[in-house]
Simulated assay, not measured.
Amino acid sequence: MVRAPAGVLSTRGEDVDPTDPEVVQLAADLVATMRVSPGCVGLAANQVGVGMRVFCVDVSEHPKTRTQHGTFVLCNAEVVASSRNEKAREGCMSVPDFTGDVKRASRLTVRGELPGTGEVVVFDTDAFEARALQHEIDHTDGFLFLDRAAGAHAIYPRQTYL
Results as ranks from 00 to 15, higher is better:
141 D>P: 02
94 S>T: 08
147 D>C: 11
100 G>Q: 07
65 T>K: 14
77 A>L: 02
68 Q>F: 02
120 V>Y: 06
49 G>Y: 00
100 G>V: 04
19 T>K: 15
137 I>N: 01
150 A>Y: 06
130 A>D: 08
52 M>E: 13
9 L>V: 09
105 A>G: 06
84 R>Y: 07
47 Q>D: 08
75 C>T: 14
79 V>Q: 01
120 V>L: 10
75 C>M: 09
82 S>A: 14
25 Q>D: 11
82 S>N: 05
136 E>W: 05
140 T>I: 09
72 F>A: 04
112 G>M: 12
47 Q>H: 10
86 E>Y: 00
66 R>Y: 00
153 H>W: 10
89 R>Y: 00
150 A>M: 08
85 N>E: 10
156 Y>F: 15
129 E>Y: 08
33 T>R: 15
15 D>R: 15
80 V>Y: 05
146 L>C: 10
105 A>I: 02
16 V>N: 06
127 A>Y: 02
126 D>T: 14
46 N>F: 10
29 D>Q: 15
128 F>W: 08
159 Q>M: 14
26 L>T: 12
39 G>Q: 04
133 L>V: 03
30 L>M: 01
98 F>E: 11
58 D>S: 11
154 A>R: 06
84 R>W: 07
64 K>S: 10
45 A>E: 09
39 G>I: 06
154 A>E: 13
58 D>G: 12
134 Q>P: 02
142 G>N: 12
124 D>V: 01
134 Q>T: 03
75 C>F: 04
29 D>H: 13
40 C>R: 11
59 V>F: 02
130 A>Y: 11
86 E>I: 03
126 D>P: 02
85 N>K: 14
116 G>C: 09
83 S>M: 02
104 R>H: 07
91 G>A: 08
73 V>D: 03
108 L>A: 04
113 E>A: 14
120 V>M: 07
134 Q>R: 05
86 E>P: 00
138 D>W: 04
139 H>T: 01
95 V>K: 11
105 A>E: 04
72 F>D: 04
21 P>D: 01
26 L>Q: 14
154 A>G: 05
112 G>R: 14
94 S>D: 05
29 D>I: 04
70 G>C: 07
12 R>L: 05
20 D>I: 08
122 V>I: 04
8 V>N: 04
97 D>P: 00
155 I>H: 05
50 V>T: 12
68 Q>N: 15
67 T>W: 00
55 F>D: 12
91 G>V: 07
95 V>T: 09
146 L>N: 07
1 M>G: 03
101 D>L: 15
34 M>D: 12
57 V>S: 12
74 L>Y: 06
160 T>E: 13
126 D>L: 01
65 T>V: 15
125 T>M: 02
31 V>I: 13
88 A>K: 01
103 K>R: 15
13 G>V: 05
84 R>V: 00
18 P>I: 08
102 V>D: 07
61 E>D: 13
57 V>A: 14
95 V>D: 04
38 P>N: 14
107 R>F: 03
140 T>D: 08
37 S>T: 15
53 R>Q: 15
10 S>T: 09
131 R>C: 09
149 A>Y: 08
71 T>L: 00
104 R>S: 06
144 L>F: 09
141 D>I: 03
112 G>V: 11
7 G>S: 11
94 S>N: 10
